[in-house]
């Protein structure tokens, strides 16, 4: 009983994920700042931002569904936190079961749908535009991402992330066999996180704040938390699926390797967001369906052929 609570609330649950999310935000912002010749924020900046948001007045625009608005970020947060529970962190998996990859995929989609609903619920004109865009974007990246992610599963012959991760100790990390798949998965992850260059739903020069335009105070704080935790969970997932080095038996080495892989992923995400311009929504749809899907299918085909 207490053990379960510990897993849920401390490690690898709430506390751990949130702290990781804040650390991720800081590293990301710092890296971006250095890419842009800036000093960047001090280490406590994400926490300070969060405290500031939580202490601010919460404005609810007239005509919006305020209960829905409160529930949406909370639901998304719990969804991504739950998804995080099933992902092994340096070999440690309390809740793993066969098929959890599908569950994680499903749970990770919840914030996107909630984001869409948030746009509709808060009746602002930019929110509705942003919400619609997030749904369009969802259809563009989700299909290639799903196809790509089944690559490692097929290769390992299991739909459990822990199992896939472990099988790489004997077979070698999948990034070597599926480099294309890894790139596609990163693209899909960027789309999921609505990060530059796929920040179409929240592009400030086009739709102000996207779905979150009318959000303020603690609700906005929760949304930012959702984004960061989602990023961390996504990174953990990719690390496990493609870079299975972290399953070393020696625990200290496993943690170290896991950390290095995590930082590597953050570096990749920051660099892409610094180097690429935002795509137009029609360009993204074209990219998703005309390029990413065929590539993902090719990758999956190779994996299946290799297995035969």
């Amino acid at each position: 009983m207490f053990r379960g609570l510990f897993y849920l609330l401390i490690f690898p649950g709430l506390a751990f994920q949130v702290v990781c999310g804040l650390i991720f935000e800081w590293i990301d912002r710092k890296l971006l700042a250095r890419f842009q010749r800036r000093i960047g924020p001090p280490w406590y900046q994400p926490v300070a931002d969060l405290i500031k948001l939580f202490s601010k007045e919460d404005l609810v625009p007239l005509g919006s569904y305020d209960l829905v608005e409160v529930l949406l970020p909370l639901i998304s947060l719990s969804a991504v936190l739950t998804a995080g529970l099933y992902i092994p962190i340096a070999r440690f998996t309390p809740f793993s079961f066969e098929g959890d990859l599908i569950v994680i995929q499903f749970l990770m989609s919840v914030p996107t749908l909630a984001y869409y609903l948030a746009g509709i619920a808060s009746v602002g004109i930019y929110s509705i535009l942003g919400g619609g865009r997030s749904l369009l974007q969802y259809f563009s990246y989700e299909v290639p991402l799903l196809i790509t992610i089944s690559g490692p599963a097929v290769m390992a012959g299991s739909w459990s992330v822990a199992e896939i991760s472990r099988s790489q100790l004997t077979m070698g990390p999948f990034i070597i066999f599926q480099p294309l798949g890894f790139i596609l998965a990163v693209v899909g992850l960027i789309g999921k996180l609505k990060r530059d260059p796929l920040d179409i739903p929240s592009a400030s020069s086009e739709v102000v704040g996207g779905s979150l335009t009318e959000f303020s105070g603690a609700k906005l704080g929760f949304w930012y938390l959702v984004m960061n935790v989602q990023a961390v969970v996504g990174i953990f997932l990719l690390v496990n699926l493609y870079m299975g080095w972290s399953n070393l038996t020696f625990p200290f080495a496993a943690i170290l390797v896991f950390l290095v892989e995590f930082l590597l992923m953050v570096l990749i995400l920051s660099t892409t967001s610094a180097v690429f311009a935002r795509l137009r929504i029609d360009q993204l749809a074209g990219l998703g369906w005309r390029i990413l899907v065929p590539l993902a299918l090719t990758q999956l085909g190779f994996v299946i052929l290799m297995g035969v």
Binding site: L32, F35, Q36, R37, R38, D196, P197, D199, A203, S205, A274, V275, F276, A277, R278
Partner: peptide, 12 residues
């Protein structure tokens, strides 16, 4: 470049 999402070019 900032408007097209290239904040790096903006800063540079």
């Amino acid at each position: 470049s900032k408007h097209v999402g290239l904040e790096t070019v903006f800063m540079h």
